[in-house]
Simulated assay, not measured.
Amino acid sequence: MAQIEKLFDPTGAAVDVAEAALAPRPTSLSGLTVGLLDNTKPNATVLLEELAEVLKRDHGVAATKLYTKDYFGTPMTTELRDQLAAECDVVVTAIGDCGSCSAATVADGILLERAGKPAASICTDSFSPSGNAMAEVQGFPGYDFATIAHPVASLDVEQIRSRVQEALPQILRILGVER
């Protein structure tokens, strides 16, 4: 007989599962400020900077702001969440390419949604189970996040650009943007 196991948050964060609704979505990114949350993993900055260029060039984003977390394996601080919510219209978090950082990247997206900001988190396909588990632990089962091919850390700039192109349609869909 199969036994149901309890899921635990590998980041050690306290869980408030009171709210599992997405923040209101924009219909366009034109004129908006997009926050980019770098979790300090190798190539996260490069990936987010490449994404910023595409969003500005092809989707009319007015500005992008890069923020950096203290540590990739835990969710962002309350102070950083509040800063992102105050300064940005939407946020993209990256990159989940290991177990704890994938869980934390998804948790960051959920924290932003609960703060009223649409968010798209990016994880690699090898660690999407970790992201899905975090969504469940956070009381947000089925939370949608972008998945790109693993790995990211060892890629050159051209390969990162390819990953951005892979993530872009997912990010736009998650943010509710009409293409």
Rank of each mutant, 00 (worst) to 15 (best):
residue 12 G to L: 13
residue 53 E to S: 12
residue 147 T to F: 01
residue 123 C to V: 15
residue 76 M to T: 02
residue 54 V to C: 05
residue 112 L to A: 02
residue 178 E to W: 04
residue 152 V to I: 15
residue 19 E to V: 12
residue 18 A to T: 15
residue 63 A to Q: 15
residue 71 Y to R: 11
residue 58 D to M: 10
residue 144 D to F: 11
residue 46 V to A: 15
residue 111 L to G: 01
residue 48 L to I: 11
residue 114 R to F: 05
residue 73 G to R: 14
residue 18 A to D: 08
residue 8 F to G: 01
residue 137 V to E: 00
residue 14 A to V: 05
residue 132 N to E: 14
residue 96 G to W: 14
residue 48 L to V: 09
residue 117 K to N: 00
residue 158 E to A: 14
residue 88 C to T: 02
residue 32 L to G: 01
residue 27 T to A: 12
residue 28 S to C: 06
residue 100 S to Q: 01
residue 122 I to L: 08
residue 27 T to W: 10
residue 132 N to V: 07
residue 138 Q to Y: 15
residue 64 T to V: 14
residue 68 T to F: 06
residue 84 L to A: 02
residue 19 E to W: 09
residue 44 A to D: 12
residue 76 M to E: 05
residue 56 K to V: 07
residue 175 L to D: 03
residue 103 A to K: 11
residue 67 Y to C: 04
residue 4 I to Y: 11
residue 77 T to M: 09
residue 126 S to K: 10
residue 115 A to R: 02
residue 32 L to M: 07
residue 132 N to Y: 08
residue 160 I to P: 02
residue 125 D to V: 09
residue 148 I to E: 08
residue 62 A to Y: 12
residue 123 C to R: 07
residue 112 L to C: 04
residue 43 N to Q: 14
residue 85 A to S: 01
residue 69 K to V: 13
residue 66 L to N: 08
residue 75 P to Y: 08
residue 7 L to K: 11
residue 147 T to G: 00
residue 88 C to R: 00
